Amino acid sequence: MNPFALILLAFLAITFLQSGYDKIADWNGNVSWLKGHFSQTFLKNQVPFALLIVLALEIVAGVLALVGMAENIKSGATIIGDYACIVSCITLLFLLFGQRIAKDYDGARTIVIYLIPALLGVYWL
C-alpha cells in the first residue's frame, strides 16, 4: 500500500466525480453559463458537445482513481492509478485549452493548480 498514491487518487476521485456530478445535476445551467463564457470564440456552437466530452473524461478519471485506490490497497500496484493520473491530465488539458480560448487567464491558472498533482502522479506512479 502506497499512502502517496492513495491520497493523490482520493484527491483526483473527489475532484472529478464531484465535478462530473455537478455537470449532470445542473446540465442546463452549465450549458447556459458556458455558452456565455465561449460566446466570442470558435467554440460557441460546440458547448454542449464539448461539455459532454469533458463530463465523460471526468467520470472516467474519477472511476479510474477509485479503482486505482482499491488496486493499491489490495495488491500495492499502481497501474490503474497511473491511468487515472494520465486521464486526469488529459481532462485538465482540455479544460485549460478552453479557458485559454475564452481568454479566462485566472481560470486557466486555477486549472494548473489541479494539473500539478496529476502530473506528479504520472511521474511517481
Rank of each mutant, 00 (worst) to 15 (best):
M69W: 09
Y83L: 15
A56K: 03
S75E: 14
I14A: 13
S39C: 06
M69T: 01
A84D: 12
G107Q: 07
I90T: 00
Y83M: 13
D104G: 05
I116A: 10
P48L: 08
I14E: 03
P3D: 09
A10S: 10
I7W: 11
S32L: 10
F11Y: 15
I116P: 14
K74V: 03
F16I: 09
E71A: 13
G107F: 06
A25W: 11
A84R: 03
L64R: 05
L66Y: 12
V122A: 03
K74P: 01
N72D: 14
G29V: 08
P3Y: 14
Y105K: 09
A10Q: 07
L8E: 09
P48E: 09
A77V: 03
K44I: 02
T91K: 12
L52S: 11
Q40P: 01
Y21D: 03
P48Y: 04
G107N: 10
S75L: 03
D104L: 02
M1P: 12
L52G: 13
T110L: 10
N2P: 14
S32Y: 14
N30W: 05
L119M: 15
I14D: 01
L57Y: 00
A50V: 13
T110W: 04
A13P: 02
Y114I: 05
Y21K: 03
V47N: 12
Y105T: 15
G68Q: 00
W27Q: 00
A77Y: 13
C89Y: 03
Q40E: 11
D22K: 06
I53M: 12
I101P: 01
Q18H: 09
Y21C: 06
I86Q: 09
L95I: 15
I59P: 02
N72P: 06
S19L: 02
L66Q: 09
I79L: 12
G29A: 07
G62P: 03
L17Q: 01
L96H: 06
A61M: 05
L17V: 02
I86T: 13
F97L: 07
C89P: 01
G98I: 00
Q99Y: 14
G98E: 01
A77W: 08
Q18T: 12
L52D: 11
N30Y: 03
L119I: 13
Q18R: 09
P48G: 13
A50N: 13
K35N: 14
L125D: 04
L17F: 00
I113Q: 13
L115S: 02
A56L: 14
L92G: 00
G76H: 12
V122Y: 10
G81F: 08
L55R: 07
L57W: 00
F16W: 09
L51W: 06
G121Q: 09
L52K: 12
I101H: 08
L51D: 08
W27M: 00
F49V: 11
